[in-house]
Design a protein around this nucleic acid. Sequence first.
DNA 1: ATGAAAGCGCTAACAA
DNA 2: TTGTTAGCGCTTTCAT
Lengths: 333, 333
Amino acid sequence: MRSTGPRSTLADVAARAGVSKSLVSLVMRNEPGASAETRRRVLDAADELGYHPDRGARLLRSGRSRLLGVVFGIQHAFHADLVTALYTAARETGYELALSAVTPDRDETEATAGLLQDRCEALILLGPQTPTASLARLATRLPVVVLARGVRGAAVDVVHTADADGLHQAVDHLVQLGHRSIAHIDGGHAPGAAQRRRGYRDAMCRHALDRHTRIIRGGLTEEDGAAAARALLADPPTAVTVFNDRCATGVLDVLAHHGLKVPDDVSVVGYDDSRLARLAHVNLTTIAQDTATMTRLAVARAIDRVEGSTITHRDVVPPHLVVRSTTGPPTSP
Amino acid sequence: MRSTGPRSTLADVAARAGVSKSLVSLVMRNEPGASAETRRRVLDAADELGYHPDRGARLLRSGRSRLLGVVFGIQHAFHADLVTALYTAARETGYELALSAVTPDRDETEATAGLLQDRCEALILLGPQTPTASLARLATRLPVVVLARGVRGAAVDVVHTADADGLHQAVDHLVQLGHRSIAHIDGGHAPGAAQRRRGYRDAMCRHALDRHTRIIRGGLTEEDGAAAARALLADPPTAVTVFNDRCATGVLDVLAHHGLKVPDDVSVVGYDDSRLARLAHVNLTTIAQDTATMTRLAVARAIDRVEGSTITHRDVVPPHLVVRSTTGPPTSP
DNA sequence: ATGAAAGCGCTAACAA
DNA sequence: TTGTTAGCGCTTTCAT
């Protein structure tokens, strides 16, 4: 019983409400210029007909899609947080989001191409792996905002976290608790990993803990964290800062399996404050990226560009420490 | 430098090639009806102008978007797997996917409305919570396929897993290993939870293990699993089947923290075979949903409907057991 | 094989 | 405040 009846149009709504198309157009766009009474009648008629404006026709006529393209990695928990915040940030701007996912079978180029076809007016790229040169080329075609990755050299707007600062805070916190033997499990070549590594090293230096500096090769996944933790088992530090929450989860897991108590035997600090960290049974001390601010900025930068700005911005948003239950004073000598 | 050059149109190409717009239209769509000579001239002109047809205008005129809308929950790991597979399934069909995410701030209604504006020709809903009545109403507007949830009563196509069968396999596996004391941590009101509960109960019955039947209230998250595991600690069974992998992860975590060895003290079986389960340090025995088949079916059903089919399908895809390292023979008496 | 003309559903400029 | 008109870039008759 299929009643895929012909979709109702502006004209149908106009006829039903007994007004002109222009008036319906105004009302649907929330523009001023229609009486309250008319507005109500139009809205009712639209509702009864299940009317939804045709974005294609709208774009054709106005030459504007009012669409912001978002490229994100569908497996990344942190990207999920960012997309969630992006929807919120875009809500009151008059622009909508068009999502395009990167999957194991679908690379960034493909994801981007799809959005270009949809006539997005600007692109927001989450932690893109695309080389700077390609980014620059893309930016000649439309405004591009890179979010959560501190790329350099391309004429694109960038919004990212002060990653080194994040690790300063992590190390300061641990030192304040009395730790000296603090290791860092890094993120390899992942976006931000180099800065976090540097932040760790600098902070250790600042506390005159140079000789305790110890960097273990990690990665972005639970598995990478697990492997790194096993490497640490022979001679465990009293505390460890980890590249991100996912990786830290792997660390916690291996520690638990080997009978090491957290935080009594080893304190652990993650990074991202992803949903993962907030789970009651994980309850991970971590460095929170300010996703609300970052996404608000990203959307604002994109819209600025769409509306003609030619200024290239680079916004570095400070992170902050969230103390939960995986850090405490060292109990061993 | 932004090259905001005005996009060239069909008319531009026609003028340059010295032919009519109709001819250019034919050539661009590779339709017969133009001489080889004309074809070449048109193609050359188009190339010189860097012309690309406007998808919006094309769809406006022809009334087709060739777009399949997908509504998914951005924080559901399993939905990420499904979306990944959907992209693959749609690849060779001539249809494209339009994604719309459900977030804590953006409900299914809103997500759906966005896709309606994009003029998607059909909708694929992943594990929708929308009540049956609303689903039915939506289905009068356009073809709707519900994926990964066995809704009943609405005139929509449904593709889901034989959930009860999955738990039969899990219990059979455990019984074969020698377990008798097998508990089930359920999913509460989550989609599929009732069927999995029933599958567990039936299988226990079939093995004459009725008096060992023991159902603990769980949920979909790690946290739910952790809570359920704690409830089990006082009198642990030798094996437990869990609603899904996420929840199972919480179970594993609590068991490890309390010194119970898996699988020596307790065997654990998850559900979904999500990326989580495949991680080397988790390596969870689980019931795999056949995402490739499910998504291929979902896309096929959607396209069938778009192309005029009026048959309502209900596809129930069998799951299969994946044995990894969280199950083994019981060691305690 | 080619072209002229009529819209698709909408918005913007202008009239009333 | 409201209605009228003229297209946006394209496909689709229907002529030629």
